[in-house]
């Protein structure tokens, strides 16, 4: 099994970039995402923010073709990664999904031991048996879980706390050597302390991986992201209304009072309930 090198470590500096070109998605007749053009910069954290139902998670699933598991999901336009359409006929889907790893909103540990949660995907992707333990340990250290679980690797992963399970899921993906991490509201099912740990972890990945973080929390996006894209629900599906650095969002009205009100409300909410604030307290 060849392990992709984290993008910023490539010698020639040609970091892969994800480019969405008129990307749209619908479920049957119900539109989820309107035609979106977006370039996701490499080795940076890009947050996709928006209210519920704006198509954030659908967009994320469309990036590594997980939408294909949903009956009736139809994607148009293209997603180019490393200059190739991810939906090209000769694209190897398991390899694509290993390289563009998606971590779900709710942690889903496999009903196996902690060790086997990491070992199963590694072995399935052809990792030699002699390397499995070392790669698992490296990934667990990367997410700061090694010291907590090193003496109970044989125990069921479901005995871990919610925050630990989410870090295990992240480690499971990292062990496979992905280049892009697709994080679908990874903190939303966690308590503020566990959410703070995951947030710090995401920040620590900056520069090593291209991270696409879906969140409904604009304050979180401001704290961790280098780039923010805001999706807004419309009858034609989620539409991209703002895209740029977090600072560029201030005072943005988009010509739509509803969006301005949303941005204002998020600013107020973020000032009072940020995970960092809770941690500091």
């Amino acid at each position: 099994m060849t392990v992709p090198t984290p993008c910023c470590a490539t010698v020639d500096g040609t970091c892969p970039e994800l480019v969405l070109d008129r990307f749209a998605m619908r479920y049957g007749r119900h539109p989820a995402v309107a035609a979106i053009d977006l370039a996701i910069p490499p080795c940076a954290i890009t947050a996709i923010v928006g209210p519920s139902g704006c198509g954030k998670s659908s967009l994320l699933a469309g990036l590594n073709r997980l939408d294909e598991l949903v009956p009736g999901a139809v994607v148009t336009g293209s997603v180019r990664w490393r200059g190739r359409d991810v939906r090209a006929r000769d694209q190897d889907v398991p390899t694509l999904r290993r390289s563009l790893a998606l971590i779900a909103q709710r942690p889903v540990p496999f009903p196996l031991s902690i060790a086997n949660n990491l070992a199963l995907p590694l072995r399935d992707h052809g990792c030699p048996r002699t390397e499995v333990a070392a790669r698992s340990e490296r990934a667990l250290r990367q997410v700061g879980l090694w010291e907590e679980v090193r003496h109970r690797l044989g125990q069921s992963a479901t005995t871990l706390s919610g925050g630990q399970q989410q870090r295990l899921c992240l480690a499971r993906a990292l062990a496979l050597g992905p280049e892009v991490l697709l994080l679908d509201e990874p903190c939303s099912a966690l308590d503020p302390v566990a959410a703070g740990v995951i947030e710090d972890l995401i920040v620590s990945l900056r520069g090593f991986y291209t991270v696409v973080l879906v969140t409904h929390d604009l304050a979180q996006a401001r704290r961790v992201a280098d780039h923010v894209a805001i999706l807004w629900p419309t009858p034609h599906g989620g539409r991209l209304v703002v895209s740029g650095g977090p600072d560029q969002l201030d005072g943005h009205t988009c010509g739509d009072p509803a969006i301005s009100a949303y941005l204002r409300a998020q600013r107020v909410a973020g000032a009072t309930t940020s995970a960092s604030a809770v941690l500091d307290a």
């Binding site: 590594n64 398991p94 779900a104």
Partner: peptide, 27 residues
Amino acid sequence: VPAELPATAAALGLSRTSCWLRLIIPT
């Protein structure tokens, strides 16, 4: 078996055979 299990396995690029034999059937 919770639908998240095969979805998570697919998200990691696991083969369907592995997913069925190692995750779904044992569960």
